[in-house]
């Protein structure tokens, strides 16, 4: 056979062979999502992001825990599940050949051992989206948005923030401490000893209550130590601030946004999320809005040249909790845990 004819034949075989067709066929990933007790997990949001194109594909596990992602173009994908109550699942570099139907069963691990009253159900509710009444944000007699109300624990404004949000540019010493704290299950967290857990203005674990007056915004977080924050609206910082766990907060209105400047921290509390340390140079700017009746939005910027190489923004939202009320919580009433914390 002449070379030319042979070439035509080879090309023809390639073009029309099932293998070549398969490269253009979409593939899929399917499987079952289960928990650490091998029970199925319905409603798990599975997503993959194409390494080549950045395209994102999503699926949700059914009532039987099964899911199918597809059709997926051949390529390499990073797979995630971010689900309240569970440790975020990541599987980078999943390769899908053309036409391939990949089976991938996913075991999720509970973020907490499922202790009654402090387990998966609790954290699923806390981190989840709550139904809220609709309507415009109420205003005070002087025309400012009124933040007064009882609010659920704050959550990430973007449910996938853990995957896609801006990462903190931590200095090596701070990154090393954060890693050690996370790996050690937070055994040395100040909160274990009933001290303030973190510096953020509203709790991500407990119900918060805000009370606003023309000169003072009070934030009560029922489980925090101490359970209150004072944000002064009628003054600046004192000149001779002594460093404290939670610093000194002042607020100024920029239109409908209250800009809170907190300064004068000691270096003892942690930064959440991420379990980062901080120094006494920390300045925390919190921009608070109430875009409607049912939501409060916070944008927190951590500025600490002793910890981060550039400011780090975290965006949060809180849902209104009508009919809810904060409770008393005296942490050191019967704290037996500190002496039993092992860590890893």
């Amino acid at each position: 056979m002449p070379n030319f004819a042979r070439s035509i034949l080879v090309v023809g075989m390639l073009v029309f062979s099932p293998w070549v067709l398969a490269q253009d066929d979409p593939g899929s990933i399917s499987g079952m999502v289960s928990d650490s007790n091998h029970a199925v997990v319905p409603g798990a949001p599975i997503q993959v992001k194409s390494v080549q194109t950045g395209a994102i594909y999503k699926a949700t596990s059914s009532s039987t825990g099964n899911y199918t992602l597809g059709p997926l173009p051949a390529g390499t994908y990073d797979l995630f599940i971010v689900m309240p109550g569970f440790i975020t699942y990541r599987k980078p570099g999943v390769v899908i050949q053309g036409g391939q139907k990949l089976r991938l069963d996913i075991p999720l691990a509970e973020a907490q051992l499922n202790t009654l009253g402090d387990g998966r159900e609790f954290y699923t509710d806390i981190r989840g989206v709550h139904s809220v009444p609709s309507g415009p944000a109420p205003r005070t007699p002087d025309g400012k948005p009124d933040f007064t109300g009882v609010w659920h624990a704050v959550r990430d404004a973007d449910p996938d923030a853990e995957i896609y949000a801006e990462k903190p540019a931590a200095l090596p010493w701070a990154a090393a401490i954060a890693k050690e704290r996370t790996e050690g299950n937070g055994k040395d967290s100040p909160g274990v000893r009933c001290l303030p857990n973190n510096v953020q203005p509203m709790s991500a674990t407990w119900v918060n209550k805000l009370v606003q007056t023309p000169v003072l915004l009070l934030i009560f977080s029922e489980g925090n130590t101490p359970p209150f924050r004072q944000i002064f609206l009628d003054r600046g910082h004192p000149a001779d601030l002594d460093p404290t766990w939670l610093g000194h907060s002042t607020g100024k209105w920029e239109g409908d946004t209250l800009v809170v400047d907190t300064f004068g921290f000691n270096d003892k509390a942690w930064i959440a999320p991420g379990n980062f340390p901080h120094t006494e140079k920390l300045r925390m700017i919190t921009r608070i809005r109430r875009p409607d009746l049912g939501h409060l939005e916070l944008e927190i910027t951590y500025e600490d040249p002793g910890t981060f190489t550039k400011p780090w923004k975290v965006r949060q939202v809180a849902d209104l909790a009508p009919g809810e009320e904060i409770w008393e919580y005296i942490c050191n009433e019967n704290n037996q845990d500190a002496e039993h914390m092992v860590g890893k």
């Binding site: 440790i87 990541r90 691990a109 996370t182 299950n185 055994k187 909160g191 274990v192 039993h340 914390m341």
Partner: peptide, 25 residues
């Protein structure tokens, strides 16, 4: 392996109110 390998998310919220149960139990 699961807990060691997947729990190291830089941005994860501390998944506990008072303490992580995995730190004690």
């Amino acid at each position: 392996f699961l807990l060691a390998g997947l729990g190291l998310s830089a941005l994860a919220w501390p998944a506990f109110a008072h303490h992580a149960f995995a730190g004690q139990y």
